[in-house]
């Protein structure tokens, strides 16, 4: 399956990935609307959280709005979503996202846009066995 692999040691905390993601999908530069999150840890290093395409949310969705495409990427069909947020609760990594005022959750679809821009090599889109 295709997923966004994170190499947190390389991250310098520039937050560029969050800008790229939110601009691409929400047309605004807003970390709350980014599918990848950069957190600063206590020891000064950075942690990256992003969907690993584990599919826990797929099973939880009551309307089958969440499906897996041929590449193994988990996608939400907005037209079917009834905004219950069950998927958000079910996500073991906390990476099915919501933003204040939004109804449909969103998540990383491994589009590679942020990985392309990351200046430190902390993100790479990879394929792994199912």
């Amino acid at each position: 399956m295709k997923y966004l692999k994170t190499i947190a040691e390389n991250c310098t905390g520039c937050n560029l990935c969050m800008s790229v993601c939110s601009k691409l999908y929400f047309k605004e530069d807003n970390p709350e609307k980014s599918a990848i999150r950069v957190h600063r840890a206590a020891n000064g290093s950075y942690a990256l959280s992003v969907c690993d395409q584990c599919r826990a949310c797929v099973a939880e969705c009551p309307t089958q709005a969440i499906t897996v495409n041929k590449l193994g990427v988990v996608l939400i069909n907005k037209a079917l979503c009834i905004n219950c947020l069950a998927c958000v609760a079910a996500c073991p990594t906390g990476t099915m996202m919501t933003w204040r005022g939004g109804l449909v959750p969103f998540k990383c679809i491994a589009c590679d846009a942020c990985a392309k821009e990351c200046p430190s090599g902390a993100l790479v889109t990879e394929i792994k066995e199912d």
Partner: peptide, 21 residues
């Protein structure tokens, strides 16, 4: 949709629901 009831305070509704989920 999650808004079909036209609630006055969607944020509290979502926050409370998510907590219980």
């Amino acid at each position: 949709t999650g808004k079909s009831n036209n609630p006055v305070d969607m944020e509290t509704l979502q926050k409370t629901g998510l907590k219980l989920h």
